[in-house]
């Protein structure tokens, strides 16, 4: 290993397996998420074992929160935000209910996702609007569109039998939603770790100038990322609509915040470049298990929110970077107080 002050101008020293393992673990960004998940699981085991015996329910809650979060992670990794995901979920659902044909409806929903992603990317990449603002605008626009198109009423699906069938398990406890969620996870994970374009997302988020200098087509990557995120959100919208047998222009009010929460708990840095799809999965598991556990024990929604907020803050606070920042700001203010008091002493 190289020492911090100096360079080893020879052969790299041999590494032991333990070294390698320790280093690999040290690199992972999911540590906190794993710790949180472990705690949540232990507490759930003690207080509400039903969380485990009813694991299909827990799984489907995880999939409900998690699918949108997976797509969101892609955008966050590039150092951008997409606040329009929840509205995309809703609009895609409404679009889907415009036709009686389920297959056509799903295509319409996904098409909506592609369009939304392109518009988001257009604002961010071409017009150069900060993604927070651009997608905040889209949040309202899309939500408004959904309400106008649906005339602010739920639209029941024509093929209700299929829709109800869709909500039921196909293999063992696995409903189509869970299967799609797992599939999306595996594909995204492979994309971000194995594919060239996916791996370059990290460079776009980690040091955009460096990415440009290295000849990475940054703009194209950004467009891809936004479209992926919106399409996944639209897919989630289609699944939601099928499961509830109707498109609902007011649904999804809780999706935006919980999907962000899942990503953040999973160790995805909002500044970009750091985090993983696996982390988001674990984050979604922590959050889903927590919610199901709390619901099962009959904790009121307001108090559930205190828990979730607490977990989120903990996840962020225990981030090594935040810990460092907190330490130094504490030191500065203490230093300032001390200096001020001596200041007065001398006057």
């Amino acid at each position: 290993m190289s020492t911090p002050h100096g360079i080893n101008f020879g052969e790299a020293p041999a590494r032991t397996r333990v070294d390698q393992l320790r280093r690999t673990l040290g690199r992972r960004t999911e540590g906190r998420a794993v710790a949180l998940l472990a705690v949540v699981l232990v507490v759930a085991l003690v207080m509400e074992p039903l969380v485990f015996s009813a694991y299909p329910v827990t799984l489907s809650r995880v999939a409900l929160v998690g699918l949108v979060a997976l797509g969101l992670t892609v955008v966050i990794l590039m150092g951008e935000l997409d606040l329009s995901v929840a509205s995309t979920v809703v609009l895609a659902g409404v679009m889907m209910a415009q036709t009686d044909n389920v297959a056509l409806g799903v295509l319409l929903a996904l098409g909506t996702g592609v369009a939304v992603g392109l518009v988001n990317a257009f604002f961010v990449v071409k017009v150069g609007i900060n993604s927070f603002i651009a997608t905040l605008g889209m949040l309202f626009v899309l939500k408004g569109l959904a309400i106008v198109i649906s005339r602010s009423e739920p639209i029941p699906l024509e093929n209700i039998t299929f829709a109800i069938q869709f909500g039921l398990p196909i293999v063992g406890p696995l409903t189509p939603r869970i299967v799609i969620f797992v599939l999306a996870f595996v594909l995204l994970h492979l994309f971000l770790t194995r594919m060239r374009a996916g791996r370059e997302f990290y460079a776009v988020g980690g040091n955009r100038q460096a990415a440009r200098d290295a000849g990475i087509p940054v703009d194209r990557r950004l467009v891809t990322g936004f479209v992926m995120c919106s399409v996944i959100a639209a897919g989630a919208g289609a699944i939601d609509t099928l499961e509830r047998t109707a498109a609902d222009p007011t649904a999804g009010s809780t999706v935006l915040l919980s999907s962000f929460a899942a990503a953040i708990i999973g160790g995805v840095a909002l500044t970009g470049g750091r985090g993983s799809i696996l982390g988001t999965l674990i984050g979604a598991f922590s959050l889903g298990t927590l919610e199901v556990g709390l619901t099962l024990t009959g904790v009121q929604v307001d108090i559930q929110q205190i828990y979730i907020g607490g977990v989120l803050l903990l996840a962020v606070m225990t981030d090594p970077a935040s810990l460092r920042a907190a330490r130094s700001s504490l030191r500065t203010s203490l230093h300032g107080v001390r200096a001020r008091s001596t200041d007065r002493g001398l006057t």
């Binding site: 039903l50 009813a54 809650r61 809780t254 619901t295 099962l296």
Partner: peptide
């Protein structure tokens, strides 16, 4: 022995609450 959930008018949340309830 009453357990109460609040879906805040989110139909998806209520559907999920319903699954939880049925599982219990």
């Amino acid at each position: 022995d009453l357990t109460i959930t609040n879906s805040q008018y989110d139909a998806d949340k209520q559907a999920s609450d319903c699954q939880v309830a049925v599982a219990a």
